[in-house]
Design a protein around this nucleic acid. Structure first.
Lengths: 152, 152
DNA sequence: ATCAAATGGTTTCGTTATAAAACCAAATCA
DNA sequence: TGATTTGGTTTTATAACGAAACCATTTGAT
């Protein structure tokens, strides 16, 4: 079998996450869902994705519990795709990606969308902290590996 | 051309980030780099990735400024791959992915690696906040779009 | 009520990316 | 000095992807 290697049995949570949402389109769909898009056509126009690929991605995102498809709220016959709690909890991932991109992938002065607090208008950021609230940098972090059994 | 659509001109920073590191292996390589791996063979054994794919990924990660390849520190002839500042700043992305995976992709009680403060041993987490430090949830966030010019 | 267009897909087909394996030169080890 | 490891590249088969055509059902206009 030459299928894309599955990481779902991996004991690293990042690896499993990438297994679930690490393909090319899934996170972009989730981003659009955060942006309020719900309909097939909305996603398609927003992303410029091929319809067959979009259909497949929506299907697997639903299968994995990140989106739900529900009959249209307005009585129409189409489906609407909404974030589940699991999907909404990808919010920090989105913010982290956004923050990195803002910093490294834009020229100084180049315009880009911004994420702000809906109520106060304040910019949103995120920081890594220990559970007592003190900020921490990458070099201070240590990955505790789970004891190896027999598979590598 | 049927190449994978480039999002590098997109005004959404998340989209550009995914364009840079959103392919299947890149973030896993970066994760391993955080874990201290530097050599071709180390990455290959750790990930089980095909060598040609790994070589290609390392090349583009270097091109994009996320890794640097430097001659071996110990005088050997091989290259070592190290995170740049740009690469190290992906740390919050890794933590966010990890945190989400821990929560949703493991059975209760199932073992997984953990991220802790090297000095204190305290678990590391991350939260989204406004710049004055108050925590915020996804529904309180608003994406301010950049004014559209002519391309869609 | 009827025709036209939009919506939400699925199917087909060509192209690209990926995986596996073979291969190879240089360095290291015994 | 011969064997093994390292760090790749090349080749080939398969799977994923993108574009376009197609289609049934809704929705909108006349």
């Amino acid at each position: 079998m030459v299928a894309r290697k599955s990481l779902s049995g991996n004991y690293c949570p990042s690896a499993r996450s990438l297994d679930a949402i690490g393909d090319w389109w899934s996170l972009l769909i989730v981003r659009d869902a955060f942006d309020g898009l719900t309909r097939f056509g909305e996603f398609q126009r927003s992303l410029g994705i091929a319809k067959n690929i979009l259909a497949q991605r929506l299907r697997t995102l639903v299968e994995r519990g990140i989106l739900t498809s529900v009959p249209a709220a307005n009585g129409g016959a189409h489906q609407e795709y909404h974030l589940t709690d699991m999907g909404r909890d990808l919010f920090p991932v989105m913010v982290a990606l956004r923050q990195w991109g803002e910093r490294y992938l834009f020229e100084p002065g180049e315009p880009h969308s911004k994420l702000v607090d809906r109520d106060t208008g304040r910019p949103i950021r995120l920081d890594v902290r220990t559970d007592d609230g003190s900020a921490i940098t990458a070099d201070k972090a240590l990955i505790l590996k789970v004891p190896v059994t027999d598979e590598d």
